[in-house]
Design a protein around this nucleic acid. Structure first.
Lengths: 220, 220
DNA sequence: TCCCGCCTCCCCCTTGCGGCTGAGTCTCCC
DNA sequence: GGGAGACTCAGCCGCAAGGGGGAGGCGGGA
């Protein structure tokens, strides 16, 4: 039996989803909540398998609630629900650790199916969300799995190292300290790598490093 | 009526999927193919709405076929099928432009449902694939979309615009030209956004923009 | 009404950056 | 032995960048 907590600030929505789920032979709604705080309390009290969580709620919104539940009660899987698939919601929810993200116009058997999937440890996204996530994913590192970039091979080891540090925002003096060489040397390296890559200045070098995948966002 | 081409090197698999889909009142299998080249030819000949494409095939594998179809016949949506959800397959398929990725153990109504979704321009992933994509996505930029957006909201419209251009490598003079204001004004904006975001110089601003997702690699 | 935030423009000044030229050491290889 | 390339260091010079300070117009909110 899959035990579920339903959290939504609208009485009718709670009742509707609750009824759909309770009608399933293998799903049981053990509690309801009208805001984020209540949701967390309900999770603490009942330790459900799945928390069905609306994004927009008073007192504490669903994103913050999801964040806390995912940290404090990792056994409870969080399935987010929203009326509109605003981008930020999705990304925030996924970063918060949610297992899924559905729109409220979901068909009733898809909802039950989703709860079962999430309870089984799988993930689930509404089709439109999947679409955006894929395009976002595909766009970010175009062909990342294939080539490390030929241009970078033109640089000497020291130049590549310099570029890496430069792309992290270090000044020439800081790079010099990091590499334990003089600032003059760093300037030479920078100058050489700029001309090799045909870049105007260090700002362009930073842009290049990110675009070329020589530096990856989030790996600071 | 959704017109589908089924491509798989195994006769039985083609027949099975073909039967399932043909049994649907709104889906019609217009051709079959036993390898990647045949698949492309079939797409060229029939211009189907959906191409159901196995990954592992002789002559030309499904990934390469997907890549070509997505470029040459963008109206035909590609739905990949595989027995095992090997990571690289998924990522390559998504980069190739596939609209979805399903495992062959898919239930028959899920398959039909998937074809309809893809034909409608939505995307679709097998649950286990969704799970990995999400964790990959969430890991890459930990909390990227939330916190920085807060910070970005501190900036005025003009400052955000300035940051966007700055992060593309434009000099103050170039930004001024782009915004049709004086360079002095740009300097003021830059100065303000640097202090608001507590960044040292424009190089740090570029790094920030990428790390925060205010600028996304590949969207130059 | 007044005040505040935003956008715009200006001057002065210091600093970091990058181009230019030149040069010493090392290793690798012909 | 000599050449090539990488790494190191140096001085000079021009310029973009960024801080500080000041100021006017313009809109919305108290």
């Amino acid at each position: 039996m899959i035990r579920v907590v339903v959290a939504d600030d609208q009485e009718l929505v709670r009742a509707g989803f609750g009824m759909i789920l309770d009608a399933q032979p293998d799903i049981e709604v053990v509690a309801e909540a009208a805001d984020g705080l209540q949701a967390i309390e309900a999770v603490a009290a009942h330790r459900p398998d799945v928390l069905l969580l609306d994004v927009r709620m008073p007192v504490m919104d669903g994103l913050e609630a999801a964040r806390r539940v995912c940290v404090e009660y990792p056994d409870t899987k969080v399935l987010m629900l929203t009326t509109f698939d605003i981008d930020d919601y999705v990304y925030d929810a996924l970063h918060a650790g949610a297992s899924g993200f559905l729109l409220k116009d979901v068909r009733r058997d898809d909802l039950a199916h989703g709860v079962r999937l999430v309870a089984a440890g799988e993930a689930l996204l509404a089709p439109s969300v999947t679409k955006r996530l894929i395009s976002e994913f595909a766009a970010r590192r175009p062909g990342a799995s294939r080539r490390p970039h030929r241009l970078l091979d033109q640089l000497t080891a020291r130049e590549q190292e310099t570029l890496r540090l430069l792309a992290r925002g270090l000044s020439n003096a800081e790079i010099a300290a990091e590499l334990t060489v003089s600032e003059h040397t760093v300037k030479t390296h920078v100058s050489n790598l700029l001309s090799k890559l045909q870049l105007r200045d260090r700002v362009h070098a930073v842009v290049f490093a990110y675009e070329a995948g020589a530096v990856v966002a989030g790996e600071a």
